[in-house]
Simulated assay, not measured.
Amino acid sequence: MKYTHTIIINISLPEFVKVLTDYNALKYWQRGFISFEHLSGDFSRVGGKIKQNYNFGKDSISVIQTVTHSNLPYEIFVNYDTEGMCNRQKNHFSQLSENQIKWVCKTQCIPTSLYTRMLTVFMPRVFKKQTAIYLNDFKNYAEKGLSVNNEKT
């Protein structure tokens, strides 16, 4: 399953990249985020890996993020691997004006189990909605300092 989301964020390109690559700030814009663990490499360079841990009600999941291509500040491609699913994300950033960035996020969901295959076939909106939520939450955090946890940033 493939889909694309585009969002406009009203900050400068250097500030955008600073917020995007600040893994200590994930808790402010990723719902359910608990913690991350550095596994290898630099977070924003090819081969960089981190383990991200999430809690969604009764369910906890861990996701391994691997940078597969980096040309910051203009693009970064990452794989997100978890039990049953691999998400490949190609993120492109363009500066529309001094304080306006366009983020195009191209996602490919590759199910690796029968259960997740069924989810992508019968409930594709769930995946698309989750990506849109993360992008909007990032926008609110980057522009206004609003946290998904109602914490001060």
Rank of each mutant, 00 (worst) to 15 (best):
I61P: 00
I64Y: 09
K90H: 14
Q89H: 11
S97K: 07
L114Q: 08
D59M: 09
S12Q: 06
F93D: 02
F138P: 01
V126R: 11
P124M: 10
Q100I: 01
Q89L: 13
Q100E: 14
R31Q: 10
R45M: 11
N24W: 05
K152C: 05
L96T: 04
A142I: 05
G57P: 00
I133N: 00
G48M: 09
I50Y: 01
T107E: 06
P14M: 07
L146M: 13
F122Q: 02
F33Y: 14
F93M: 05
C105T: 15
Y80W: 07
T66G: 01
D137H: 01
N87Q: 13
N99A: 13
T153L: 11
F127G: 01
N140G: 06
M1K: 08
G145C: 13
F16C: 09
F16M: 09
I76W: 02
K144H: 15
D81Y: 01
P124G: 10
F56S: 03
E143F: 08
I61F: 10
E143Y: 00
R31Y: 12
Y115V: 07
F138V: 00
R45F: 08
V63Q: 03
S97C: 08
M85R: 04
K51S: 13
S113G: 07
T107P: 00
S147V: 05
T112N: 05
P73K: 00
Q95G: 09
L13G: 03
K106F: 04
N71R: 10
G47Y: 09
L20T: 01
R125H: 11
F93T: 02
N24E: 11
C109W: 02
T107M: 15
K90T: 00
V19F: 07
K139Y: 06
Y134H: 11
N136I: 10
I11N: 04
